[in-house]
Write a protein that binds this DNA or RNA. Structure first.
Length: 346
DNA sequence: AAGGCGTGGAA
DNA sequence: TTTCCAAGCCT
């Protein structure tokens, strides 16, 4: 309801959601998966879900192209559910966190098989789907279904930790963030509220050098002006990344390259790859024809490329034409090796 | 519940 | 160069 207030103007300082949404109506980023605020249009739950999964731990810039290609190739959840696993995994190549792609397919198929082809419209229903955790369930419920869910991502954690000066370290602070946020969620625009907070965290209340002078809720921010504002939210110390080493095999015959598929679980699970041994703490004795360094989340890897004449006798794999190697969907680690070999051949 | 799980851009 | 970290999920 829209009640006319008789309170003096500075009482608006209490209206967190009002100030935030006014700012969002003026400053919302135009994103491929987003419906403009105030347009009255309702976004397609399938597209909202697709975008949210891609955006997990991944930047907007990295996602945009993948989102366009996926939604063009598989316009509906039924199309995606009917897709070949290999096609989806190859299309995801380069985006990272490949369990998301496996769960994306599993979720699409669960929607078709168990939910009549339509997404559940409640947070709890969404939460039960593969690859949908607390954040994504809340985001889809709020954005696609207008449910007053409490959406908390890393941007929103930062905004709330600062605005309320919460110094509890993550992840324990999560409960406090939700508790602070819950009474602020406006019943009429929960999706815009969540997206406004994320835009605020992404563009104004940034990890370093926040632009507090442009903040719509800065007037009552408890961290504003503090020299240590960048310390919030408090995070646990990171562990050092170990160095690991491995070998990859370049097996070429008749202008084709021998590719294998990695096991479903573990690093780069389910992705096409160059064959090779386990990755270990010690460098290989063998010297190779190329070498790449690649940083993963929890270790750094140096991979040595060694030429081989033929696959192991019992090996499973496929001879992939060198001319169309880009379409094989190799993860970045192996793409780096392919690029090096192309440089060699000039 | 703490660690496994990618990548590329920014500072 | 190194470090940080982005619309997290799963086990």
């Amino acid at each position: 309801m829209s009640v006319q207030t008789s309170e003096p103007p500075d009482a608006a300082c209490g209206d967190f959601a009002g100030r935030l949404l006014d700012w969002y109506d003026r400053s919302a980023r135009a994103l491929p998966w987003r419906v403009p605020p105030g347009s009255g249009r309702v976004p397609d739950p399938y597209r909202v879900w697709m975008a949210e999964v891609m955006l997990q731990q991944t930047t907007v810039a990295a996602v945009a192209g993948y989102y366009e290609r996926f939604t063009a190739r598989w316009p509906t959840v039924a199309d995606l559910a009917a897709a070949d696993d290999a096609d989806v995994m190859a299309a995801w190549a380069g985006l990272g966190y490949y369990a998301r792609a496996r769960n994306l397919l599993a979720c699409a198929r669960a929607i078709v098989r168990d939910h009549g082809g339509g997404f559940p419209d409640s947070e709890a229903g969404l939460r039960s789907l593969p690859g949908v955790g607390d954040y994504t369930a809340a985001a889809v419920a709020a954005i696609a279904f207008g449910r007053p869910a409490v959406v908390v991502d890393a941007n929103i954690e930062r905004v709330i930790a600062r605005h309320r000066l919460i110094e509890t370290p993550l992840p324990a602070a999560k409960r406090a963030f939700k508790a602070e946020l819950a009474p602020l969620v406006p019943a009429d625009r929960p999706g815009d509220f969540a997206q406004a907070l994320m835009d605020l965290g992404a563009g104004v209340c940034t990890p370093r050098a926040p632009a507090c002078d442009r903040c719509p809720v800065g007037a009552d921010c408890r961290a504003r002006g503090r020299a240590d504002i960048e310390r919030l939210p408090v995070k646990p110390a990171k562990k050092a990344k170990p160095q690991r080493y491995g070998i990859a095999h370049w097996i070429e015959r008749d202008d084709r390259l021998w590719l294998v598929r990695r096991p479903e679980k573990g690093m780069l699970g389910g992705m096409r790859a160059l064959p090779g041994g386990e990755w270990a703490a010690m460098p290989p004795a063998e010297s190779g024809i190329a070498e790449v360094d690649h940083g993963f989340t929890h270790f750094d890897l140096r991979l040595t490329l060694v030429r081989r004449e033929a696959p192991l006798a019992a090996a499973e794999g496929e001879w992939w034409p060198l001319a169309t190697l880009d379409a094989a969907g190799l993860p970045t680690l192996y793409r780096k090796l392919v690029d090096k070999m192309r440089e060699r051949k000039g």
